[in-house]
């Protein structure tokens, strides 16, 4: 396997980690106004992701940085092309990041209300826009011979991409609801559980629709490498609902986690060896070869990744262990 392929896989792993981890805290953020009936309950919900959300967000930054380092042409085309979508996402993420810290530092109901809705929007928009972005990457966008994006913002809002966005929102909502069943006490826990059961159906339906659309409408399944991850994602998504109905919430969460990882792998497997197909001419596709950094840079980055990624996994895992306890309303809360 060449270094270009290794880096393609590593970036897939970084995005999988990002969607798995931020997936549930985007989900929790979106559920906040609906599952928290009063201020105390909303604090409980926010504190359930309190120690983690910031570390989770670094997965996105690392994925972005790795794209820049390993496939600078991909990074440059994508980020300048998806400009307006990324701008919206950044505004949402800035607001969200500040909200967690500021929300409970003032008692006034209007103040808290404002930041609660900021958390909602700050979680909803990135979830939606990442779905739109991933679907567009898989589908391909107009790219010219100089690797430049020549489409428009509204071109990115095609039906397939919008379906991808809505699917991401639904899957993250489901994932977040299942997470809450593990992390908070009653009465929020029960509400989370009944929401999760409904969201399961919605998420499942949208994933099926997306796969059908991708099969007939895009090149995602042309090479066949996307079949196995799709199968894993589908099976685990079904299992997660079954576990949930049996009251095995921990297993349900493990399953949604695997589902999200394999949805990401499906997209990447369908892309390979492209990183951004061109709808203008297949000769203009960005691939893991024409978009990549030099072999020397890839080698350096491989060494760095091999040393530090396991470390990150160990200490982030440790934090989940430290804060494994279920939060209830009588716990002291930082946020």
């Amino acid at each position: 396997m060449d270094l270009n392929t290794i880096w393609f896989i590593l970036i897939a792993v970084l995005f999988a980690g990002f969607f798995l981890l931020e997936g549930f805290d985007y989900g929790v953020g979106m559920l906040l106004p609906f599952l928290g009936k009063n201020d105390e309950e909303r604090r409980l919900i926010i504190n359930a992701i309190g120690p983690f959300w910031d570390g989770n967000e670094v997965w996105m930054l690392t994925a972005g940085g790795a794209m820049f380092a390993a496939f600078a042409q991909w990074y440059a085309t994508l980020f300048s092309g998806f400009y307006i979508a990324l701008l919206l996402m950044l505004l949402a993420l800035i607001l969200r990041g500040v909200s967690f810290e500021y929300r409970s530092k003032n008692d006034h109901p209007k103040w808290r209300n404002f930041w609660d809705w900021s958390i909602f929007i700050g979680s909803f928009l990135p979830a939606l826009l990442w779905g739109v972005a991933v679907a567009n990457i898989v589908r391909g966008v107009p790219i010219d011979a100089d690797m430049n994006f020549v489409g428009s913002f509204f071109g990115l809002l095609n039906p397939f991409a919008l379906l991808g966005g809505v699917m991401f929102v639904a899957v993250f909502l489901f994932h977040g609801a299942v997470y809450l069943t593990l992390k908070v006490g009653d009465p929020v826990m029960n509400r989370a559980k009944s929401s999760a059961k409904k969201l399961w159906i919605v998420a499942l339906a949208l994933v099926v629709l997306f796969v059908i659309y991708a099969f007939f409408g895009t090149g995602m399944y042309r090479s066949g490498t996307a079949y196995p991850p799709t199968l894993v994602a589908a099976v685990t998504l079904i299992l997660s609902g079954l576990f949930l109905n049996k009251g095995r919430n921990g297993w349900a969460f493990a399953m949604t986690a695997v589902t999200i990882i394999f949805i990401t792998f499906t997209a990447f497997a369908g892309l390979y060896p492209n990183v951004l197909p061109s709808t203008v001419d297949a000769a203009y596709n960005l691939t893991i070869y024409n978009a990549s950094a030099s072999q020397y840079t890839l080698k350096i980055m491989t060494i760095v990744a091999l040393i530090f990624t396991p470390l990150v996994l160990i200490y982030q895992g440790w934090t989940y262990y430290i804060f494994r306890q279920r939060l209830t309303l009588d716990h002291e809360m930082e946020y």
Binding site: V58, T62, G65, A66, F68, A69, M301, V304, A305, F308
Partner: peptide, 10 residues
């Protein structure tokens, strides 16, 4: 891109 990626990861 290399120091940027290392900054995030490390």
């Amino acid at each position: 891109g290399v120091p940027l990626a290392i900054e995030a990861l490390l």
